[in-house]
């Protein structure tokens, strides 16, 4: 990652730096997109419908869930609510992310929000720990991934079922591996461990007892609540939270 590099000066260089940062994820998303398109085609979606969904929904998790529960006739209400549920984590993500977009105009903020996906958001949050996020850097980060998602899912829907089962090649573990890598980047010591433990236990328990994507919201809330309860408040802290943050940071 380019976290230790200083911010390049021109917008073009900032955009290039963003694109370089997203490169590994760019390549990781291609097989996932092909797979999504292939599965969607098997459910009867046309390449144009797949392209449209990828272009205006642009949320891999909820798209996979939608295709998974897709049936004929398809219910608009059920599908809309399911997308809401899977993506409810975006509310927490946006609340955490918005204060880091100080260099963005309000129109730019709402445009930036459209491109908020787990991968770009996590990378941008990591970037924001050491540097200011500029609109050019963010555009360089998100636009290649956006193009990769639309083109790979559309291609997948044209190629169809020829791809076979991705689990055979271990490709189902690509995104878990990306997320594990990103989680490690947020490690700040034992308190992070407590947050992760709370999220893990809550997500696993919720996942095994509740249908659908509630486990993500439940696990996220449990982790955030743990952080709030273990937070150093002004009078109770001999060492300020910022100090723990800096000493735990690899940079």
């Amino acid at each position: 990652m380019s976290a230790e590099r200083r911010h390049p000066s021109t917008p073009f260089r900032q955009a290039t730096a963003g694109a370089v940062t997203i490169l590994p994820i760019f390549f990781a998303v291609l097989p996932i997109g092909l797979l999504f398109g292939a599965v969607a085609a098997q459910k009867g979606l046309s390449p144009f419908e797949v392209a449209l969904m990828s272009a205006i929904v642009f949320a891999g998790g909820s798209q996979f869930v939608a295709i998974d529960i897709w049936q004929d006739p398809v219910s608009i209400g059920v599908m809309t609510f399911s997308a809401l549920l899977v993506n409810i984590r975006h509310i927490l993500m946006g609340a955490s992310f918005a204060p880091k977009l100080k260099r963005f105009g309000s129109g730019q903020k709402y445009a930036a929000a459209f491109f908020l996906v787990d991968e770009t958001w996590a990378v941008a949050e990591r970037h924001a720990m050491t540097q200011t996020i500029t609109p050019a850097w963010y555009a360089g980060l998100v636009l290649p991934l956006y193009a990769a998602w639309i083109s790979s899912t559309t291609t997948g829907s044209i190629i169809g079922a020829a791809l076979g089962d991705p689990a055979r090649y271990g490709l189902d573990f690509v995104f878990p591996a990306v997320f594990i890598f990103l989680v490690a980047g947020f490690w700040k010591g034992p308190k992070t461990g407590a947050v992760l433990a709370a999220s893990t236990v809550t997500a696993v328990v919720t996942h095994s007892f509740v249908e659908g994507a509630w486990y993500i919201a439940a696990g996220a809330l449990a982790g955030v609540a743990t952080a709030a309860f273990t937070a150093d408040t002004e009078d109770a802290a001999p060492c300020p939270p910022g100090a723990a943050l800096e000493s735990g940071d690899p940079q």
């Binding site: 787990d118 947020f186 992760l196 999220s199 696990g219 982790g223 709030a228």
Partner: peptide, 8 residues
């Protein structure tokens, strides 16, 4: 804590 909690 939101980023690691969501990803986890």
């Amino acid at each position: 804590a939101v980023p690691p909690a969501v990803l986890m």
